[in-house]
């Protein structure tokens, strides 16, 4: 059985604790053993930078080192964790001096950043780690006739150096949605507009103004539901007129879980779609 290190970001905590169950259920159904990186720490969330940006490199070198210690790659479903951890990997792999300094400090915890672990997010995990054929073979039922609007969220496509697909013409999410039997709604208004999540505690009104925009675009294009890989986008955009789910919540149901097992019932905006 393939193994992957599950990085526990803040999206697995408190009111979002069900995201951990969604993630482990998803991995089980894909035939992947998830190994929790239990001493992992916050990626910084783009907020620790406001205290000291150098700490962010150290935190994530340590997070990656924890995966390497267990001999596994690192997987996070969160767009922001993915972007920040992938950025750290790029910085360390291209700067031997920085890597050496951080490794000196890491050594006190018995850890070492080697640079061997790959960084995965749900989208490239399915495409590159699980493989599209295996993924498709696990699907047991389909959402026939359901119109789904893919919403990538920013941090899997920007900045360019960590983008996990062509940022100008991304297709991986559509390719993951199609085998679920859905009708993919593409090219809707504001499909690339940010959900505003990261302004929630800097300027809450800004978040409110942004979150609704892609949803309105998807609704206008006739989508029954929006599908995002990112738990933060989901959190920011749930509660408006148009429903949104995480793509893993759709996949789990397509692979046999009940909607309740996939926590559809926790949505503020009810998802009313049928499956065969």
């Amino acid at each position: 059985m393939k193994k992957i290190g599950i990085y526990p970001g803040c999206c697995f905590q408190g009111a979002d604790i069900h995201n951990y169950d969604i993630t482990t259920d998803f991995l089980n159904r894909m035939g992947v053993e998830g190994i929790l990186l239990d001493r992992a720490a916050c990626c910084g969330g783009g907020v620790i930078d406001e205290t000291n940006k150098k700490i962010v490199y150290g935190l994530n070198a340590r997070n990656i080192a924890l995966a390497e210690e267990k001999g596994v790659d690192l997987y996070t479903p969160c767009n922001t964790c993915y972007m920040i951890i992938a950025k750290t990997k790029l910085a360390l792999d291209s700067d031997p001096g920085l890597k050496e300094k951080i490794n000196e400090i890491l050594a006190e915890e018995g850890l070492e950043y080697k640079g061997t672990a790959k960084i995965y997010h749900t989208l490239n995990l399915i495409r590159d780690f699980i493989g599209m054929d295996t993924y498709k073979s696990k699907i047991q039922r389909k959402f026939e006739g359901v119109k789904v609007a893919p919403y990538y969220g920013c941090h899997v496509l920007t900045p360019n150096e960590v983008a996990l697909d062509d940022p100008e013409n991304p297709t991986v999410l559509q390719e993951i949605l199609k085998p679920l039997g859905v009708e993919v709604v593409e090219g809707y208004q504001n499909e690339q507009t940010c959900c505003g999540y990261h302004a929630r505690f800097t300027d809450p009104e800004q978040k409110e103004r942004l979150a609704v925009k892609p949803l309105e675009g998807a609704k206008e294009a006739g989508a029954d539901v929006v599908a995002t890989p990112c738990p933060l986008c989901h959190k920011a955009m749930d509660g408006y007129e148009e429903p949104i789910l995480q793509v893993t919540q759709l996949i789990n149901v397509a692979c046999g879980a009940t909607p309740k097992d996939a926590f559809w019932d926790l949505n503020k905006t009810e998802v009313k779609i049928s499956f065969s």
């Binding site: 905590q13 408190g14 009111a15 992992a40 916050c42 969330g45 620790i48 205290t51 935190l59 505690f201």
Partner: peptide, 22 residues
């Protein structure tokens, strides 16, 4: 709100390894 959030974020990560979203 933002500076209080940044200070709290760092403090709780330092204390527990994670931000206390509660």
């Amino acid at each position: 709100i933002a500076t209080r959030r940044a200070k709290f974020w760092f403090a709780t990560v330092f204390e527990t390894g994670q931000i206390d979203k509660w």
